[in-house]
Design a protein around this nucleic acid. Sequence first.
DNA 1: CATCAACTGTGATTGCCATCACAAAAGTAT
DNA 2: ATACTTTTGTGATGGCAATCACAGTTGATG
Lengths: 216, 216
Amino acid sequence: MLNDLHIQEQEVIDEHKECVRYRKGDVIFHEGGIPKGIYCIRKGGVKISKMTSQGKEQILFLSQPGDFIGYRALIGEEVYNATATSIEDSSICYIPKSDFLEIMHRNPAFFNKMIKKVCNQLGIMEQNLTIIAQKSVKERLATTLLMLKESYGMDGDESTLIDIRLSREEIANVVGTATETVIRLLSTFKNEGLIDFDGKRIKVINEEQLKKLAVA
Amino acid sequence: MLNDLHIQEQEVIDEHKECVRYRKGDVIFHEGGIPKGIYCIRKGGVKISKMTSQGKEQILFLSQPGDFIGYRALIGEEVYNATATSIEDSSICYIPKSDFLEIMHRNPAFFNKMIKKVCNQLGIMEQNLTIIAQKSVKERLATTLLMLKESYGMDGDESTLIDIRLSREEIANVVGTATETVIRLLSTFKNEGLIDFDGKRIKVINEEQLKKLAVA
DNA sequence: CATCAACTGTGATTGCCATCACAAAAGTAT
DNA sequence: ATACTTTTGTGATGGCAATCACAGTTGATG
């Protein structure tokens, strides 16, 4: 995302940004907090999630190295409506609000890229909402596994492996279901030869069949 | 939204826009179609909805006079991922892509307003997704009724009336549930004195209680 | 205003999935 | 290594809500 900036702009960012290491479980920003800058993930992984009044977590999306997080609330001039939590040891850069907004307004191409990004994200969220509202848990889990493979699939030999370590509970909080249900369904998928797993490492064995399930 | 434009820009739009009347049920744009402009509602009402492969409809949001629709796909340079359908007789202006984009890029304040708008919309969608994923149908229906009152509540005498005529099926497709379930729950709410209705005109009688239900 | 279609409403039934309870395994810390 | 916490896994149970079936009502249309 930052690649399109001019050299002098990159320098501004390099000067002002500060990179911080976060341990697994550390919170980067919290629902209700006031955004004072944006974050860019260099290494590791982050989950963006909301808590309901009953203390249930809904994971909205997962972010990887290269992704910006926290820009929605900053640009929208709202408080954070979700919490960002490191799901593994991560290195994350912080770019102060003033620097970010200045660059965005000085550089029309970058501004353009940002608004496109937000629009695409909105499209994804509309799609996810529809899936959660209209499909069964089994179909949603299949969809989630395919999404994870898309985002975290490996190259080469291990191309079937989903290279992210999520707990069963976290998968449940993406799908919007109970942890036990995820455990049971993953076992079913394993028995049916759709996937394989040992602990948290999940492999997609029969992607075609999984896709059929997902659209069912 | 258009009020912030300069006078000459308003003139450009006035020259190029064309306003069309749509009857109830008419489709303004269709999922999968290529956006060639944006729409601004002058009169009436529009639902934006997605269809699942099983033919189930999910209503993503409802638009009123003054609202833009179709800008997400246009700006994001995607095909429409939802369908816009007139839910009553409406008058809707069409602004060609080139005019809209030119004005957006010429007028930084307007550009800013647009990106803020998309960010806010994304926040709303994230909130809705969480509600649908984590709350019971009863809680979601209560939330939807409150949202409808917020958007379509009247002033003065009839301040309790929700001034929009949605079928039970359409309400169900907002909430993400079956039509029969909505019918039953609305009757329950009526019996409990939370709401009152005669046909499609719904009144909120006990907003406080409804709010308690919604957050439950 | 007659006819048909669409919508509202009610009852019965099924089943998906949440919840509770608890055992086993894995990971973490001392 | 040992104790403790967290995570994974399994079984039993119950309830919410989808689905099916059909009656009554409203509304559209020629």
